[in-house]
């Protein structure tokens, strides 16, 4: 999904050729770039954009799943869902911290999210309507996220790559948890199977869109590839995801809602039907089913929490002042 973070990313950079060549040499030698290393401004900007969008996605992504905490069907499911959403928040925190190594503060990034200047993954603008959606989100959405994130574990920027290694471990647990919810549904009653099929129908295409549109010969994308921020094309990752997921759907006894889906013996891969990119762009630009609601919620929570953050700051200041006063008195 985080390839969406590169949409419109401007890798334009103004350093001289010798600087860029020296940088590229380090990248080609698979050396990790660390926060204090010299780097082209375009590299830094592209990373900030992608990493912060990734962080924002984790935060907004808490909403559709949080919608089901109070209604989870069993105590075990409730505990697992709480733990999962807590992980997502943790990923957000981790990614904001990694972004800060590039000289941008969490406050700035939060402002960009709240003002609408920064985006988050389009998938979280779809509603979680039934309990089966919690299964489908874990299975498909986290499954698609992992495809991207495994590749990102080898990203050239050290702090991002290291964050991804940890995040991937948790995400793969989430994916299994989601799939396990689907298994329970598909082993259950007819109405449970219907819930599962309905969730797959609604989440299949939006999950494929998470990888972003085909790049064709986009200049931005090839720059990101050359800098090894990105290692695979959107289409390659999408195909990997489809190839891994279709057999899982078959195992569940569910049908993937794509009449054109066919195994291609030559490419050893599935051919799939056309993705509705109009829908994708509509959702990215703000007219998905939940865009307004997600942003309204986020802004409300930020506004309602302002007095708490101010109080925490004021208290910390008072403490500091008291400490200094007593230090001065002691001297």
């Amino acid at each position: 999904m985080y390839s969406q973070g590169l949409i419109g990313a401007d890798g334009a950079t103004e350093e001289d050729e010798a600087f860029l060549q020296a940088f590229q040499k380090r990248i080609d030698a698979e050396l990790k770039i660390e926060p204090n290393d010299p780097m082209p401004e375009g590299y830094r900007k592209t990373l900030v954009r992608q990493m912060s969008q990734h962080a924002h996605s984790e935060i907004i992504g808490m909403q559709p799943e949080g919608n089901w905490i109070t209604r989870a069907p069993t105590l075990r499911r409730k505990a697992a869902l709480l733990a999962k959403i807590q992980d997502e928040g943790g990923h957000g925190l981790y990614l904001y911290s990694a972004s800060e190594t590039l000289g941008v503060s969490r406050e700035e990034l939060t402002d960009q999210l709240l003002s609408g200047a920064a985006k988050y993954s389009s998938i979280f603008n779809y509603p979680a309507l039934t309990w089966a959606d919690i299964g489908a989100i874990g299975w498909l959405v986290d499954g698609a996220a992992i495809m991207n994130q495994i590749a990102l574990c080898r990203c050239s920027y050290g702090p991002y790559a290291r964050a991804m290694i940890r995040i991937c471990k948790e995400e793969s647990f989430h994916q299994r948890q989601g799939y396990e919810i689907m298994i329970a549904l598909c082993n259950g009653s007819d109405e449970q199977k219907e819930l599962a099929q309905d969730a797959l129908n609604r989440f299949w295409w939006p999950s494929l869109m998470m990888f972003g549109p085909s790049e064709g010969d986009s200049v931005h994308s090839s720059q990101s590839m050359a800098w090894k921020i990105k290692r695979f094309s959107n289409d390659d990752l999408r195909d990997k995801f489809i190839n891994a997921t279709v057999p899982q759907a078959e195992y569940l006894g569910l049908s993937v809602p794509d009449p054109d889906l066919r195994w291609n013996e030559q490419t050893k891969s599935y051919d799939h039907g056309d993705i509705d990119w109009e829908e994708f762009w509509r959702v990215v630009k703000g007219d998905g089913p939940c865009n307004r609601e997600r942003m309204k919620n986020r802004r409300r929570v930020h506004r309602e929490g302002a007095w708490v953050r101010e109080a925490a700051l004021a208290h910390a200041q008072k403490r500091e002042e008291r400490k200094q006063t007593s230090r001065m008195a002691a001297e």
Binding site: E304, R309, A312
Partner: peptide, 8 residues
């Protein structure tokens, strides 16, 4: 969940 004043 998702409603707290800070991420922490």
């Amino acid at each position: 969940c998702g409603e707290a004043p800070t991420l922490e």
